[in-house]
């Protein structure tokens, strides 16, 4: 059975680009444009991995959502890849290897999305069955 990847991003064109990339690689893709809706779908469909935009409606909606997921026993093991352009906005590059206690996600990918890097990151973070 193919794995289901959830994408939460408010930029529908980015969602579309990622969807085509992932579907062509054999994943099932579900998506949401904002956090609350995304959370509902996650609780309903239990995706295997979440791709999350760091900034949606507010400056840190993505982070808030990640914290919510991590603090819930049902979703705390859901791998999260955060897609971010923050690096180019603040000059601050997130480094999960150093900030793992602080940042509740498994990996960061910089926008614009490189399809190969995205697929590699997903394969790295999918739980081994």
């Amino acid at each position: 059975m193919s794995k289901t990847i959830m994408i939460i991003d408010d930029d529908i064109d980015l969602v579309e680009a990622m969807r085509i990339t992932l579907e062509s690689t054999g994943f099932d893709v579900i998506d949401a444009q904002e956090g609350i809706k995304g959370l509902e779908i996650i609780r309903e469909k239990y995706p295997d991995l979440l791709i999350l935009d760091v900034m949606m409606g507010t400056q840190d909606e993505g982070f808030q959502l990640a914290y919510t997921l991590r603090s819930n026993p049902d979703t705390k093991d859901l791998p999260i890849i955060m897609v971010t352009a923050v690096g180019t906005q603040t000059g601050y590059h997130f480094d999960p290897s150093k900030d793992e206690n602080f940042l509740p996600v498994d990996e960061f990918i910089e926008k614009p999305v490189n399809p190969q890097k995205l697929v590699d990151a997903i394969n790295r973070n999918l739980p081994v069955v």
Binding site: D11, D13, A17, I20, T21, A85, T88, Q89, V113, P115
Partner: peptide
């Protein structure tokens, strides 16, 4: 600058999909 970036990011991500995935 930030607002200019979002569409460019989307364009490039889309272009990447066309050249790499398709």
């Amino acid at each position: 600058s930030h607002e200019l970036k979002s569409p460019i990011v989307a364009i490039e991500s889309t272009a990447n999909v066309i050249t790499d995935v398709m």
